[in-house]
Amino acid sequence: MRRRSALLWAAALGALLLPLAVDSPYVLHIAIVTGIYIVLVQSLNLVLGYCGLLSLASPAFFGVGAYVATLLALRQGWDSTATLAMAMLAGIFSALVVGFPSLRVSRHSFVIVTLSATLLLQLVALNWEEMTRGSLGLANIPAPRLFGMTVRTRIEWYYLSAAAAAIAVFCTWLLVSSRFGRAMIATRDDEQLALACGIDVFRTRLVAFCLSGGLAAVAGSLYAHFISYIDPGVFGFSVSETLLIMVILGGSGTLWGPVAGAVVFTALPEMLRLTPEIRSLLYGVILLSLVLYRPRRLFP
């Protein structure tokens, strides 16, 4: 345990000093993306890891966050502090709308209903052209302005993304170590028993799902500002795929496992760029071997 916390402190210190050690914009770029993914994995971890519900709706809230923040920044010229808050609210609200019906069905059906919700939202983004410009997408998303500071350079971006990741991990920790967190875990481990203990299973799951939606939306708005262009592709299944890999192989239902998963599975596809032609094939092979030989989690 002591070795583990020493390792964590070392990792945190390393993360803090990273921009001083490397000057490659590419490495920083990957690090920034990793930070955004850490926010996302914690969002999925809340639902999958602590409530035991396999949700494919992460891209839905990610996309909602991206669009809300982008539209408010582009059309209304809002400050990013405000757009981020609005994106988060929109994420929570859409999670409420999706979760209210889908959390009533069985765990298996939940997988498919959340996937359908994502694809429906994608259709809305494609067809509501007056608002979203449909498939033409929204370009020139401005650099974020937070508390009067504009985040422009990659180093500034790195610290923004690292801060977001740290806050996401901290909030997850606060939540799961609270009374409510224990209720979440109880609903995951034994639904009947949780009911018998007087836990409102549906309400517990709904609240967790909404918080997860809020986190995903924050990640979405950061992504939109960082890449500076979004189109309905942000609702695509590929985000779900990556997240599932990160959370499950990292160790779902643990605080740091998914974080490690996010680091490894953002870096791995980039490292495989060494062999562009067979990169995806290798990725599949590595993934399969991990599932077969290290099915629980990557790290002890």
């Binding site: 396999l54 890999i245 995806s280 399969l288």
Partner: peptide, 23 residues
């Protein structure tokens, strides 16, 4: 094990098949 393992495993097989066929 939980159904997550098979979800990921078959996902990996899908990626492998797609790319093997492409190559």
């Amino acid at each position: 094990r939980g159904f997550e393992s098979v979800v990921l495993g078959t996902l990996a097989v899908g990626i492998i098949l797609q790319n093997a066929v492409r190559l």
